[in-house]
Amino acid sequence: MKGINIIVCAKQIPDPEVPFSNVSVDVEKKEVIVDAPNVISPYDENALEAAIRIKEEMGGKITVLSLGRKVSDTVLRKTIAAGADALILIEDPAFERLDSNSVAYVLSRAIRKIGAYDLILTGRQAGDWDSGQVGLLLAELLGIPSISLARSIKIKEDRVLVEKTVPVGYEVVEAGLPALVTVSNEVGELRYVSRSKMMGLLKRPTPIPKWGAKDLVDDLERLKKIQLVELSPPPDMRRACLFIEGSTPQEKADKLASFFKELG
């Protein structure tokens, strides 16, 4: 196979690494308020890294497809700086708060609009709702084989070879292309994007094509919103922390050792 056409589905979410004190719940409006910058969902970053490694090995094209609202173009452009070739944003008020089935449907419409592809990569789950469904649903909608929880992906002629994490270790599986693979974090972190590279890119930003409902969906009735009955804050996790003081590390270590002695 010469050059591979990869589509990476990447969702933008508020940084899930943020301290829990920055997250609150508006019970009335049934909304989660996160005081954090947007990032690409971490497993989607792993998926992009996997795509870039495949492209480095055999050449090809990576298209990043992102569905979201109020997204930051700068965050999206980081995917280009890392090694993606094209970027498409799917944005429309009609696409807000969709359930997993509908998200997969909109993505499937966008992928059909893109046309030719060999491989679709998604993160194993998004870092906000953690549903872990959209990838597999998307493959069903497109009628292509799907493999989940990849820790390594290789292309061999017209087939994809995947090492996937299973409870006893890992399993090596293969499927014919086109196929969809969901990626786990064992694949590795997205490569570092230098500030200067990012700044250079932002100086002459290429416009990001935006597709909305009229471009993708004929029958808006087909889209279903998440039906939230109630949203509540989590149980309080805080404990009263006893800090061990001391003027030297050894003094602290000695006090900590006696604490463990009482425990043991």
């Binding site: 997250v23 996160v34 906000d128 953690d130 279903k224 939230l228 949203l231 509540s232 804050p233």
Partner: peptide, 19 residues
Amino acid sequence: LIRTKPIYGGNAIAALKCA
């Protein structure tokens, strides 16, 4: 079924219904 699940990593608990 009313389905209760943690979202945003457990920062909120959502109760939802599906058809």
